[in-house]
């Protein structure tokens, strides 16, 4: 699903955010990306979402070499990548329903389909009763679940999460993780950047560790087999 081969990212000014990254994430695999802040976790996710482009090497997502996607095609690539952010990135002047509906509105779905899919998605994250609420009235955990609902509403094959539990207490964090596990079980590839080592090590998933812009440790892809059974 995701293949990095010798991928590097150097920002203008000469700062190397990623150097010679190699790994492969199989379809339906769930993995964590960890490392200190500044180690390059966010940059790696940005390369996958084409928010940044690799300076060297290849990034292949869903069989497509990202270097070959022109600027105007980027939106269509991003529709296949559900993204979840630490700060949720919700629109506070719209209801929960409208926030979750946004990817479908962008894709030009009919009103009827949007209603069905948004409710199915909100149901999955347990927020069906909040569809009329505004995000500001929700707790941090609930806002994050709205973010997840929005990321999965158009059923992308790939989910990226950047510190999704960053501001949440351990119990809420586990709750969020179990939502990701559910998606992984139905075949969605999930990559979660997190520095919450305690949480990660208690879960039986592959861990990619970044250190000083390099991939210093890869717990191996064997966990991809256990992922489905967990």
């Amino acid at each position: 699903m995701i293949r990095f081969s010798h991928a590097s990212k150097r920002y203008p000014g000469g700062y190397d955010a990623l150097q010679d990254i190699n790994f492969h994430l199989a379809p339906g695999e769930m993995a964590f990306l960890t490392g200190h802040s500044g180690a390059g976790k966010s940059t790696l996710l940005k390369l996958i979402a084409l928010i940044e482009r690799a300076s060297r090497g290849q990034v292949i997502v869903n069989g497509q070499n990202l270097a070959k996607i022109p600027r105007r095609k980027i939106p269509y690539h991003r529709r296949n990548v559900g993204m979840i952010f630490q700060d949720h990135q919700l629109l506070f002047d719209r209801t929960v329903f409208d926030n979750v509906a946004l990817p479908l509105v962008i894709s030009g779905l009919s009103h009827h389909e949007i209603g069905k899919k948004v409710r199915a998605s909100l149901d999955k994250v347990g927020l069906l009763n909040k569809e009329r609420a505004y995000p500001i009235t929700l707790s941090g955990g609930e806002q994050q679940r709205v973010g997840i609902a929005r990321a999965v509403v158009n059923k992308p094959p790939l989910l990226l999460a950047d510190e999704p539990t960053g501001n949440l207490d351990p119990e809420l964090s586990r709750e969020i993780m179990s939502i990701f596990e559910q998606f992984s079980q139905v075949g969605v590839t999930v990559l979660i950047a997190s520095h919450d080592i305690d949480l990660i090590t208690h879960l039986p998933y592959r861990v990619l560790t970044l250190k000083n812009a390099r991939l210093s440790n890869d717990s191996g892809s064997h966990s991809s087999q256990t992922a489905g059974q967990y």
Partner: peptide, 16 residues
């Protein structure tokens, strides 16, 4: 601005 960034992140085209 924030709204535009979010829409771009979730795959909104320039036309949209």
């Amino acid at each position: 601005r924030d709204e535009i960034v979010i829409i771009k992140l979730i795959g909104g085209t320039d036309t949209f």
